[in-house]
Amino acid sequence: MSAEPIIRTPIIRMEGVSKFFGDLKALDNVSLEVFPGQRVVIIGPSGSGKSTLLRAINRLETVNQGTVVVDGFDIRSKHTDINAVRMELGMVFQSFNLFPHKTVLQNLTMAPTRLKKVPKAEAEERAMALLAKVDIQEKAQVYPAKLSGGQRQRVAIARALAMNPKIMLFDEPTSALDPEMIGEVLDVMVNLAREGMTMVVVTHEMGFAREVADLMVFMDEGKIIETGTPDEFFNHAKHPRLQKFLDQIL
């Protein structure tokens, strides 16, 4: 459905990345490249390290070994201003993590006005446009507690977009939602993908993966077991563990 990535330089490059929690290897010598405009969907059983991998990209999780380069910055280096890199990386969490003491609008304008010194009026105008995009502009003045889960997650996506990131990271964005609300959030994500946003998504939503993914990644026990297109995954899965995983969830 979208063109093959033309630019050859990856915007995210992970090489030989390992992360230990004590004896447990959360990430075991993982390498992954993401190119601008590419949609990567990471799947795998729980505890397979997929969330850790995602969080290693913006250093919410520090890794023990390997290289992580994002947008040309070595994020493991002490000389890298990690906050500047994070401004280029929007992140959406499973549990939304909206700021409960701020209104929806303030949730969106806080980071741009504080971190990019965007004038308040301009930030609000842009925030309203983003809220319209995720179809929730009527809730701008409401506190997050008054929103449903699906609404909260759409606001959270808008909040991340308010910083104009180059890449969006999604960490199981629909896992905490009631089934009837999953659709509204996936719709927003599909639209985002259509606009050409570079996305790395950890999810169990196979329909979504089939529709938008350029690259599928299957992880188990901290390792990347298989990569491929959705067609290769869903129709010609090679590794028995992937076959077994897909059989279980489809």
Partner: peptide, 12 residues
């Protein structure tokens, strides 16, 4: 999660 959300936006 509040800390992670704020840090991921770029707040120090």
């Amino acid at each position: 999660g509040q800390t992670e959300a704020a840090r991921s936006l770029g707040f120090n």
